[in-house]
Design a protein around this nucleic acid. Sequence first.
RNA 1: GGCGACAUGGCCGAGUGGCUAGGCAGAGGUCUGCAAAACCUCGUACGGCGGUUCGAAUCCGCCUGUCGCCUCCA
Length: 494
Amino acid sequence: MQEIQIFNTLSRKKETFTPLNEGFVGIYVCGPTVYGDPHLGHAKSYVSFDVVVRYFRYLGYRVRYVQNITDVGHLTDDADEGEDKMAKQSRIERLEPMEIAEKYTYRYFRDMDRLHVLRPDISPRATGHIPEQIAMIKKLIDKGHAYEAGGNVYFDVTSMPDYGKLSGRTLDEAEAGARVGVSSDKRNSADFALWKRADESHIMRWDSPWGEGFPGWHVECSAMATKYLGETIDIHGGGLENKFPHHECEIAQCEGAHDAPFVRYWMHNNMVTLNGQKMGKSLGNAITLEQFFTGSHELLSREWSPGVIRFFLLQSHYRSTTDFSEKALESAESGYLNMTGILDAIQGTAGAGSGKNDSSGVSGTPFDLQKLRNGLHTCMNDDFNTAKAIGLLFEQLRPLKSVLQSGKTPSNITELRDFLEIFCGDVLGIWHPGEAGEAGSALPIDGVMQILLDLRQSARQNKDWATADRIRDRLAELGITIEDGPGGSTFKLS
RNA sequence: GGCGACAUGGCCGAGUGGCUAGGCAGAGGUCUGCAAAACCUCGUACGGCGGUUCGAAUCCGCCUGUCGCCUCCA
């Protein structure tokens, strides 16, 4: 088994990963609040953890990947003020709150599917786990970590001596830095809500020992992570901006309730920025994935495919910020097409059958697959360095292009193809051979094109350039590009 | 103000003290009826000032700048 180094945000250093249970990895990642379309920032987070999960599976671990869907209306502003986000959106769209949740859950999965993000094993909904959350709150009250005040329940942060260990904050600082005055119900300004009393206007409400209300934001993750992964889990992931207060509060709740360490390895992905500013829903500068895929945003000059977006994100490390610009996307696209071009060429050569090209001369020189494989493992084992891995793929695979073009075939091309199918397909998720052809499979386009290419070839042999160029130009008008190469002509759909 | 990151060649972006990251763009070349595409070759960069060291982009200190969190947020 490979030794994986993970940067643990709790200890702020890389640590060797050892699972709680041999051969098994339990991972929890904070999922979206479903009141709007997912944007590029969501993609960075979920693509990053997608690769983490895929790599663990590749190494032979059994992984249980849990990612919540937050469908409870949390407040838009301060913990005690502002409007319920779900209710607000439902008013805007004139839909039931649960219609909003269903709609955006559906759209979230649709966009993640397009990005080839594998679905979590469990996607628990917060509203489906109200009893679990109430049970946890009760336990915290019983153990003296929480108190009820006027239908609200708050976590008493002074009951946890190490509160703040993840974010590096102390209670003194939290109190001194508190911007909002102490809420009348709270004993301490740093205390956070576990349960909120619902006033008359609040639509999403549940019965509880403390009256009708709704759960606090942080407790859903604690309750659901515990239910599906146990009191101590291997990995907890999420966006950096959730380190405080969300993850800090999760730790307090779980460790307060269970007296056991909550998370062994905390992983936080960095932000996507736009002109140096964080891309975020509340900042109003987020470009949704749908907008990328359709090109319908004022900052976008055209559409960008999911494959390009994924490749673009994986070209930087998950702990680095990814600065978005169309120029950066454009170079990612060129690189992506270049990479898939190499992979397709390998696939094409290997798929053509080992015997076919033998007469033209198999070089016989095998590709150094071991070197590539080991190199990629080294990259990935070092805190999932996908950027370095992609660099290595370019470096090692590029010389193969000229070899293949010269008609030679490394003796182990089939093994190489098989490995790349697994590594670039199953692990990185950036190559899906065969997928592109599905759309036009109803028509025998390849056969029709071959007829045209043959006709054009005869024209060229007769030096009838007018006819040859006419075929090429007319096809170009239809979005079909003809490219003449030494081994004949090929076509591409644009 | 507190806590925490980051500053790399035209752009994006890795980087474990000494050995070319990589990609994009650009330049030259090969091929080609033309075009396009392919392929080959080419860039010695690490915010500033000190320090440690035989040697620092990489370690330490200071400075400058940018960003994140401290309120919902991937």
